[in-house]
Design a binder for these strands. Structure first.
Length: 712
DNA sequence: AAAACATACATTTTT
DNA sequence: TGTATGTTTT
């Protein structure tokens, strides 16, 4: 495809600052990759190019695009966070840290904060860990260190928060750990306080490109500034209308002030849209115009008018879910590619009803929620072992694994070792090594500690080189393997998950030049939900509106357009936050190429409470006729009432799974005889409801229930 | 020490 | 609603 004149200006721009204000669907990604290729073919060394993307996925795609256009690879393409990890490893000494640092995720952070809360002795009810962490994250995003905040701290609450901030940082440091914000903070200060490091990097990266600049926070802004110092070859791209991470500290002002920061900047506006139909763009445009704090920007359609945007109301969320899934099914049946259909929602919990509808209708789908995998107990256990091996100071991880699986090192023992360690100014692990010197620990327990220490030492000796074989060893020697196979419940899946993790590590080993445990751990810590989206699977995708950023689909459904959900209730009080919600909606709308349906439910059950809802104000701002459930009923093809009922029964009666019909007599190993009251087919998650002769009625998972049919 | 049970509790988005 | 924590039981 030919480049437009604006696109060409952006691609061919060589030296000096460049701001690309790129609307949705304007071919921005293509422009960036073409620009990288153009730079290289004009004689710039690939190694002197540093491109920063918003997600790992985007970085991966950009790398592939550059390579596939026949250009020698070698340009550094990664996210801010990955870049920071690299720099911190390389300049660990100057940054005042050790290169084998652990990266603490939200759960780890929360545990550290709970420790801090205990130690600082605050009235715990007034300080929830998550809220305190949120404040601290805000300070860090603004590059405010403890001392700076302390200076201006007034009032009891602020002073407490500062003490918590201080203590929290001490805990992280003691564990040789950094949280997500620290990665940025450390690099920003590295560049600021070590001019020779900064100059070295300015020398190395002659061309800096930053995508999604509207979502950079102050720390990222300072890092970008430092990296561009000296040469000023900084190209940023973004769209203020798509800024959706204010809550995470992103400062839309960074992109708005770019021309002030870099007075000789060239500015290119990409306003033509090559993605969506005119009908969709008109709706997006109307909506975004309701934002007052906004720089006017046009959306210029280049594709035909297309089908009308649908806004459809449903009676409740169940009806909404089933109707949307039916529409997905109809699209697929009419020959549309299932992988070109997506459903977006405001909050992750809204995927549940949709999944149920997909399963019952036996349509395959994918939920884009990758980090969930890393939150599973067995995965966290495994990774905690690896962290202990890679970073001996990581006591948080050590505490997790020391008695997992259970090996007879209980709370009392841990308390004794901990207090002895403190008295002797040693780490917990060093103390555990000298269990014999600690008074009051039984001989048998001493032996258990010694065995554990020996195992860690042995595993640690094999820490170099590829990761997957090491993980196999850990799995085996730690006893996790046998605990997974003897454990009840979801044993099969827990085991599968660990195997999946090891497979992933094997892929890492073969795809990396110098695989190392430290590098592997630091990489997986930065995985995001979006990274889990598998476009090649050709399955209909379910994801949050945030995860949808940067993607596009032929057909898009946005569900739950109700006051309190979209816009979310937490943003209702504040005009700025409301505008951000509107931008979020705008992002969702502009993902669609051909078809868009926005829906709402008049009733919704939120945390167990069934209540009436109000349609989102955004629906009115979009200027589309709103169709109510009653309107739909007047349609000639409408299936009355339980419109989705037929499909459920169809699934119910199909073969391949044991059928439990109402009234059938069954026997349960524990509860005895009973009669089937209901059966819900959910694939392997099918449930049977049985009224037992004991009088109790229970809903059981078929795969665990161990029911036998009684013949009568 | 682990499982079973009970009860409180808080609910956005994510690198 | 479902999770996360605390309490009791085995």
């Amino acid at each position: 495809m030919e480049l437009t004149s604006s696109q060409r200006v952006a691609v061919e721009h060589k030296d000096g600052p460049l701001l690309v204000l790129a609307g949705p669907g304007s071919g921005k990604t293509r422009v960036i990759t073409s620009r990288i290729c153009q730079l290289i073919s004009s004689g710039v060394s690939p190694y002197s190019i540093c491109a920063i993307t918003f997600t790992n996925k985007a970085a991966q795609e950009m790398r592939e695009r550059v390579i596939s256009s026949g250009i020698r690879s070698g340009a550094h393409i990664s996210t801010f966070h990955s870049l920071c990890v690299r720099l911190l490893r390389q300049y660990a000494q100057q940054a005042g840290i050790q290169a084998n640092f652990s990266i603490y995720d939200e759960a780890d952070q929360s545990r550290c904060m709970k420790m801090a809360l205990k130690e600082v002795e605050v009235p715990a009810s007034d300080f929830q860990p998550a809220a305190v962490l949120d404040r601290i994250s805000g300070w860090k995003s603004d590059l405010e260190l403890v001392e700076a905040v302390r200076q201006r701290a007034d009032g009891f609450r602020m002073k407490m928060l500062v003490r918590l901030y201080d203590r929290y940082q001490q805990i992280l440091q003691a564990n040789n750990a950094l949280d997500f914000d620290d990665l940025l903070v450390k690099v920003a200060y590295l560049l600021k306080e070590h001019p020779q490091v900064r100059e070295e990097l300015n020398e190395r990266f002659r061309y800096l490109l930053i995508d999604e600049y509207q979502d950079t926070n102050h720390a990222q802004y300072q890092i970008a500034k430092g990296l561009a110092l000296g040469h000023g070859n900084i190209c940023v791209t973004g769209d203020p209308d798509q800024s959706i991470y204010r809550w995470r500290g992103a400062d839309i002002g960074n992109i708005l002030a770019f021309e002030k920061d870099y007075p000789n900047a060239t500015v290119v506006r990409l306003e033509e849209n090559f993605r969506s139909t005119a009908a969709i763009l008109a709706v997006a445009d109307k909506l975004i115009h309701a934002n007052k704090k906004r720089k006017e920007k046009r959306l210029v359609p280049t594709i035909g008018e297309g089908a009308e945007v649908q806004v459809q109301g449903y009676d409740d969320e169940e009806e909404e879910a089933y109707a949307v899934v039916l529409k997905v099914k109809a699209l697929i049946d009419s020959g549309e590619d299932a992988g070109e259909i997506a459903i977006f929602y405001r909050v992750n919990s809204m995927s549940r009803k949709l999944e149920e509808a997909f399963i019952r209708n036996r349509i395959s789908y994918q939920v884009v929620r990758g980090v969930e995998f890393y939150g599973r107990k067995e995965i966290r256990d495994m990774i905690a072992y690896l962290k202990v091996l890679a970073n001996p100071q990581d006591e948080l991880s050590l505490m997790r694994v020391i008695n997992t699986p259970a090996r007879g090192i209980g709370e009392t023992t841990l308390a004794k070792v901990t207090s002895w360690a403190r008295d002797n100014r040693l780490g917990f692990y060093e103390a555990a090594m000298r269990a014999a010197d600690i008074g009051g620990i039984a001989k048998a327990t001493q032996a258990k500690l010694a065995t554990f220490v020996r195992m860690i030492e042995d595993l640690r000796s094999g820490i170099e080189g590829p990761v997957a074989p090491l993980m196999e060893k850990v799995l085996h020697q730690s006893g996790l393997e046998s605990s997974l196979s003897t454990g009840r419940g979801d044993e099969g899946t827990a085991r599968d998950n660990v195997i999946e993790l090891i497979d992933g590590a094997a892929a890492y080993d073969s795809g990396t030049d110098n695989p190392s445990l430290v590098d592997y751990l630091q990489q997986i810590a930065l995985f995001s939900d979006t990274d889990a989206y598998d476009a090649a699977a050709r399955k209909t995708a379910l994801m949050t509106l945030h995860a949808a950023k940067g993607l596009e689909f032929d057909h898009v459904f946005i569900i739950g357009a109700e006051e309190g959900i979209l816009p979310h209730e937490r943003s209702a009080s504040n005009e700025d936050e409301l505008e951000e919600e509107r931008r979020l909606m705008f992002v969702g709308i502009t993902r669609a190429r051909k078809g868009l349906e926005v829906s709402f439910a008049r009733h919704r059950t939120t945390r167990g409470l069934f209540s009436r809802t109000i349609p989102s104000q955004f629906l009115y701002e979009m200027g589309v006729e709103i169709r109510t459930p009653e309107d739909a009923e007047r349609e000639p093809h409408h299936q009355k009432g339980e419109g989705h009922g037929e499909l459920i029964y169809e699934a119910f009666e199909e073969d391949g799974h044991p059928e439990y019909l109402k009234g059938e007599l069954v026997r349960h190993p524990k509860f005895g005889l009973g009669r089937v009251v209901g059966f819900i087919w959910l694939g392997e998650n099918s449930t049977v409801t049985v009224k037992f002769n004991t009088g109790s009625q229970k809903t059981l998972m078929l795969k665990y229930a161990n029911l036998t049919k009684e013949q009568f």
